[in-house]
Simulated scan of single mutants.
Amino acid sequence: MQQPDGHHLAELNVGRLLAPTDDPRVAEFMGALDRINGLGKRMPGFVWMMVGSGEPGTGNTEAKIGGDPQFVSNLTVWEDVTSLETFVWKTVHKQFYDRRAEWFEVLGEMHFVMWWVPAGHRPTLDEALERLDLLRSAGASERAFDWAWLEEATAWRDRQCRVAAE
């Protein structure tokens, strides 16, 4: 699928922490949020990130999904697939991705979705969760997709990313 003219790529990644955000079992992850998010914001092609209160070390962990304080989300917008792919798979972010089992539960269902948004649009968490539900219920389409849907995305294949929930 080609990127539509005048559009950017939005992505939502959802996870459920193994423990509350102030628990020592997730302290290393929580302690790295500002560094990793800051790196993302400085990457070429970065457009926007949903942010929380701005309290150091919290990222966007205040945005609860379904009222569950251990569900955390990352919602960003990128100029294109290559920009997001570079950040996810070719920076220190990849080291944290590889260690996700240390901090996150296995959800048993798709927890990542991408979709095109008009340039300048800032998706809400509700909008993003609707896209995730669409991907879960109907599979990949032009309205909600994963890495496999994008022909130009190759780094996830090279780095053994599984499309299905882990």
Rank of each mutant, 00 (worst) to 15 (best):
V81C: 14
A63L: 03
D68K: 09
V106D: 05
H111E: 05
A19G: 13
A119F: 05
C161D: 02
M49H: 11
R16S: 03
G139S: 09
S73N: 09
A10T: 03
A101L: 07
D133Y: 01
T154I: 12
M30D: 02
V117M: 14
T124F: 13
A119R: 15
E79F: 02
P69T: 11
E28P: 00
R100W: 09
R16A: 09
R143P: 01
W48F: 13
G38P: 02
D22H: 12
C161H: 03
N13C: 04
R162Q: 08
M1T: 14
L135D: 02
E152C: 13
M43P: 04
R99C: 00
T154A: 11
V51M: 10
G57C: 02
V81I: 13
D126K: 05
H93P: 00
T21I: 12
C161V: 00
A155N: 03
R162D: 00
G15D: 01
S53R: 14
A164N: 01
R122A: 15
Y97G: 05
L134W: 02
E102D: 14
V163C: 00
T91E: 06
A19R: 14
P4S: 12
F87H: 07
F112E: 08
W147R: 03
F96T: 05
S137Y: 06
A140L: 04
M49W: 04
S83D: 09
W103T: 01
G54N: 10
D23Q: 09
F96M: 10
P44W: 09
T91L: 13
F96K: 00
W103L: 07
I36Q: 03
T76Y: 07
D80C: 08
G52P: 04
L129V: 12
G6L: 10
F71S: 06
P56C: 04
A140P: 08
D23N: 13
V117H: 12
W115Q: 03
V47N: 05
G139A: 05
A10I: 10
L9E: 10
H111L: 09
T86L: 04
D133Q: 06
A144Y: 11
T58F: 02
L134N: 08
E55N: 01
V113L: 13
W116Y: 12
A148T: 08
V77R: 02
E151L: 13
E109Q: 12
L33R: 10
E85H: 07
F87L: 03
G59S: 04
S53K: 10
D34E: 06
A119P: 05
S53P: 03
L17M: 15
V117Q: 11
E102A: 07
L150G: 01
S53N: 06
Y97D: 00
F87C: 04
P69M: 11
G120D: 15
R131E: 05
T76M: 12
E79H: 08
D80P: 00
D158E: 15
A165Y: 00
P24F: 10
H8W: 12
D98I: 02
M1S: 15
T86Q: 11
V113C: 13
D146R: 05
G31Y: 10
V163R: 03
A155C: 04
L84N: 04
N74D: 10
R157H: 10
R143K: 15
A140H: 07
L150I: 14
V14T: 03
M110Q: 14
A138R: 12
L134Y: 10
G108D: 08
G31E: 01
A153V: 04
A10H: 05
G59K: 03
P20Y: 13
F46N: 07
T86K: 08
A119G: 05
V51W: 01
F46Y: 15
Q2L: 15
